[in-house]
Design a protein around this nucleic acid. Sequence first.
DNA 1: TTATTGGCTTGATGTCGATCAAGCCAATTG
DNA 2: CAATTGGCTTGATCGACATCAAGCCAATAA
Lengths: 258, 258
Amino acid sequence: MRPTDTPKVRALPMFVNVSDDTFNRVTGTAYLQRFPAHTTLLLEGDPVDFLYVLLEGQVELQGTWKDKETTLTILRPVSTFILAAVVLDADALMSARTLERCEILMISGDAIRTAMAEDAPFAVAIARELSGCYRGLVRTIKNQKLRGGVERLANYLLTLRAKSGGGDLVHLPHEKRVLAALLGMTPENLSRAFATLGGYGVEVTGADVRLGKLRDLERLARPDPLIDNHAPRGANPSAEADAEVWSTEHQRASGARS
Amino acid sequence: MRPTDTPKVRALPMFVNVSDDTFNRVTGTAYLQRFPAHTTLLLEGDPVDFLYVLLEGQVELQGTWKDKETTLTILRPVSTFILAAVVLDADALMSARTLERCEILMISGDAIRTAMAEDAPFAVAIARELSGCYRGLVRTIKNQKLRGGVERLANYLLTLRAKSGGGDLVHLPHEKRVLAALLGMTPENLSRAFATLGGYGVEVTGADVRLGKLRDLERLARPDPLIDNHAPRGANPSAEADAEVWSTEHQRASGARS
DNA sequence: TTATTGGCTTGATGTCGATCAAGCCAATTG
DNA sequence: CAATTGGCTTGATCGACATCAAGCCAATAA
């Protein structure tokens, strides 16, 4: 990988408490690759030889059945993906494709499995990583099955707000059509959902959204720490260092967050 | 735990390639507990102190939001559950409750985390376990979002058939109301779904189901190795030792399976 | 400039599944 | 035995969301 990328990768939770030796061994044979937009990186059913680390761009993970298709998640830097398949040396259950130009680090699956067997702290880090991914998925399912479209959108906006520091202006990081897929609805219904949220103070101008009447929006959305992974749980100041963001999305060291 | 239970536990994938020393250390402080039917073992949001191993009975994992409720899975012996929360020492994201009288082994979470840090093979086993759970969840989501109710039921029946040896008679292991929850539909719609499948040779008599016209049923169900975890993938005899069954369900050594 | 394209919105309609309301049947209970 | 209960089914209705079909608007290209 490029020298400038090393710190980003070294800072991944997966590597934080790991020896330089193991880190170098695992990433030694890794290589950086650039992909154009709309490129399929991996097709469901394919054997998985590499762990992917997204350093730049956006990647969509999606599943297919009988010419129907569903978006499972959209990743942004810095994220790793298909870790579970790598650990088991199994075939991919979902396809991965770029939404825009991407810069991706590819780490040998063999190297990872070997390092895990030899280095307990590294294996523990991987297990923690996987636990976070698992819990992210549980949250996703609850979000999908327990909430309606408008509620999902409302909570998405609140999550976005929380991640971007808390002002009442947020900027949508995806095209609306992509956002619709992410929220599990059609673009048409996303439009209508935004229209509905107009009654709760949500004003949309292109990709910029103003959340007037935050209070009203929250009363509708009812964000829940057991689904949304932002926002305080009742009155419990316990540690809770979950970085549960699906296939491991990690804030890059940009904005100072309180 | 009881001496008679030891072999069952020792045979869990999580312990197979683990030293006696580690196994004894981890299970040393474990204790066996019996619960009556319809008992809540764990409420979502609770801190998790134990890894649970279901030895007898059935347990439902479910999530709640705004007085709506959804069943995430139903476990049967031998299964472990809430492993991810144990690894992260985090709060439970789902509630667990017994559907019938249960016998459950409770293993200290601390013991597990400590053993992982000291014993790489054990940590690797846990990571593999988690990977399987993760992939089970991915399958669940694809099943939910890509298939309609009738298709889910059809595939459920085919999976059941595969697990019970392949005859054209299968026996439903749950009450229909529970099955409905598991398949993500109401009892009413499960009834109608069964009625629809009548046209595909499915005859229901109480909990016994006969799958006449298997061919027709399969053409409707279109089982897919990337969702259903049974049935052959096209023509690929590769190893694939996934035991991906959600929160780790493992066949007990009863029926000889080919 | 005038076409054209692509992303987004809006309205009309259709479909799937949830809900409401009986009714049925078998098992349990007084 | 009759009465009750609980699980299951069936029909009618409703609501959420998908689909189909225009139409709008801004960016790009001829």
